Computed example of a mutant assay.
Amino acid sequence: MANTIRNIMTTDVECVTLLDNVYEVACKMRDHDVGIVPVVDDQQNCIGVITDRDIVIRGVAGKRSGSSAVEQVMSETLITGTPEMSVDEAAKLMAEKQIRRLPIIENGKLAGIVAMADLAVRDKFADQAGYALSEISEQRGEEHLQ
């Protein structure tokens, strides 16, 4: 199916483990120009994510140092997709959950990640990305950290 997430997801994803600290995560974000880093266990199971917002809200504003453990700032509640889901399904899920990045899991392992930008740069998927972004931007209420 040409319209699946597998065709647009980023597969070369930088990850961290619970052995890393917040400073190391921030450096990976800077060095790879990303706003999210999945947290994986030793079998590559995605057990959480750290976003740039997590670092600011739970780290800096929470008065935690850069040497704080990953698990002190990571988001453990994961919203994930699969490589075989359609771009439309992913866009709707991202809009509904008000997230801009979606970890993609296959056979229990992290397979990649899809960001709103991935949807937006594909001309044929621009409508789905626009819909999701407008839903994320317009909805009010509790803000999600992911």
Rank of each mutant, 00 (worst) to 15 (best):
A111T: 00
N7V: 01
C15S: 08
D54E: 12
E14Q: 09
I57F: 12
G35E: 04
L110E: 05
M94R: 08
E76D: 04
L102F: 10
D12C: 07
Q98T: 06
D12R: 11
Q98R: 15
T51Y: 08
V25G: 08
I36A: 13
T10F: 02
K92Y: 09
I105N: 00
H32N: 15
T17F: 02
D118M: 01
N45M: 09
Q72R: 13
V16N: 09
A117Y: 04
S65W: 12
D31A: 10
A115M: 07
A91L: 10
Y23V: 02
D12K: 09
I113A: 10
Q72D: 15
I79P: 04
I50K: 11
G59E: 03
N7F: 13
E24T: 05
I99F: 01
A61Y: 13
R53F: 08
V34D: 10
I79E: 08
A61S: 13
P38D: 14
Q43D: 12
V16P: 13
D42F: 09
V56M: 14
E71M: 09
E84H: 04
I50W: 09
V70N: 09
A91Y: 06
E24S: 15
V73P: 04
A117W: 01
C15V: 15
V70T: 12
G62P: 12
N107G: 15
I36V: 15
V37Y: 00
K28W: 04
C46S: 05
A95H: 04
M116Y: 04
A26T: 07
T80I: 15
K28T: 08
C46H: 04
M94A: 00
V114S: 07
I8Y: 12
L93N: 06
V40Y: 01
V22K: 05
Q44W: 03
E89P: 09
L110Q: 04
D41L: 00
I47D: 00
E24H: 15
V70A: 02
A90Y: 07
K28Q: 11
I113E: 08
V70D: 02
I104R: 06
D88G: 15
D88H: 12
S65Y: 14
E96A: 09
L102N: 05
E89A: 14
C15Y: 11
S67Y: 06
E89W: 03
D31N: 15
E106A: 15
I8N: 07
K28L: 15
P38T: 09
Q43K: 11
V70K: 01
V39L: 12
V49L: 11
